[in-house]
Design a protein around this nucleic acid. Structure first.
Lengths: 233, 233
DNA sequence: GAGTGGTCTAGACCACTTG
DNA sequence: AAGTGGTCTAGACCACTCG
């Protein structure tokens, strides 16, 4: 029928998606077992498994041993965001990237921060603030705290030559991270830096990364007004 | 060594991740071929493939035939967001969900919208606006346009009884979607509806869904101030 | 041309869960 | 107890792409 009706796993996946999309298989209903589908499509069971596993990962199917496979009741759409290095993000937009360091100094971190990170209160951390530009217009403000216990030699890095964002990606591996996205009104300081009116709505990303339960860095990225983060389903 | 050093694909993947995280394999460097790793781990090549494929999907490895596999230079972190039905999102926060329809009427859509959707200009679409509440406080404003050509019987749906969000998920399959996230200041109308000051920073999701190149619906979700979208890496 | 990853097979055993 | 998905194997052929 379709272009991909070879008995490849992609072709099978496309057919299964069709049956779900066209309501041939209703939400919540039991679908045939891998073995049966393998017979129907004339292929090995592993091929059917390859097709269905991805759909289960994507939340379209619910699979349980013995109980079999069902079409998911609430197909929560799963969105994948790629968060690149800021320099690359700017350059991908066809703009020229520029960067300027505002401040880099070791300071005792706030109680709010140390408690979130599980560090002793008043721990000294490296506070790095900088601005990233796209075509000489402010693009985002990076406000970062780096764990000096974990990365002591970061004290001697010259963050006017390389952005903290990029240095960390290349030098500080992490195993987990928490991210949150929100909207905030620009305070006077941010408004000035981003060349925006005070109170302007800013898109904000807060991220904390961990290396096996030890915090690496906490950062807030505040984008200049008008920024959109795009993706596809 | 580690807990999972059985020669399962998970164990192998953990070991590969360790080599990357601990800089045993440097970014950009060539890693052994699947065949060599299979010998090293004493398993079948398919098992190594299973471990590495996922890492390539996640952006940690770059794989090319003949050229081999390299550790990615810029490990762009990949974030997965689950976007559930709004009712479930509210209930998952432990709040009581309530919903109120503001408007539902067939109207000619703006040129901006019809051109984005690839519809004839002045096409009539169903415009549905509603408010979702969490514990009786405004949670988000849903402003939606539905393609009447594709879904003619939507005219007779009573959107005061079921939210457009939920009705569409259950009745209108889609095959693709564009999503964008941004921050916007609340205009007078939204401020009033969301019980927020005018100009307050709102987190906004714009989404257009398609069923094989035919637009299904375009929606803007404007969240009340303070909303955060959280996830993990 | 040759090396690498992409995929498929036929079979096997196991883990989990339900009846 | 039995059915289902999860995984692994040994082998095979193919597609791609680099040298």
């Amino acid at each position: 029928m379709t272009i991909a009706d070879t008995n490849s796993w992609r072709g099978i996946q496309a057919e299964l998606l069709r049956r779900i999309n066209e309501r041939e298989w209703l939400p919540g209903s039991l679908v045939p077992s891998e073995a049966d589908l393998a017979i129907e499509f004339g292929c090995a069971r592993a091929t059917v498994n390859r097709a269905m596993r991805e759909m289960a990962d994507a939340g379209l199917l619910d699979r349980k041993r013995k109980a079999g496979t069902r079409v998911a009741l609430h197909p929560t759409s799963r969105v994948v965001l790629d968060i690149p290095i800021i320099r690359l993000e700017v350059e991908q937009r066809g703009a020229e990237w520029r960067y300027s360091l505002i401040e880099s100094s070791a300071e005792p971190a706030s109680l709010a921060l140390t408690s979130r990170l599980g560090l002793p209160r008043d721990s000294e951390m490296l506070h790095v603030r900088s601005l990233h530009y796209a075509d000489n217009r402010p693009f985002l403000h990076e406000d970062r705290w780096i764990n000096l216990d974990l990365l002591p030699h970061v004290r001697s890095v010259d963050f006017s030559a390389i952005s903290a964002n990029e240095w960390l990606i290349q030098n500080a591996p992490y195993t987990a991270g928490d991210i949150s996205f929100s909207a905030m009104g620009a305070d006077a300081g941010l408004a000035d830096l981003l060349d925006a009116p005070e109170g302007a709505a800013l898109f904000v990303i807060d991220r904390i990364t961990w290396d096996k339960d030890r915090p690496v860095t906490a950062v807030r990225l505040s984008y200049a007004p008008g920024y959109r983060m795009n993706t596809k389903i």
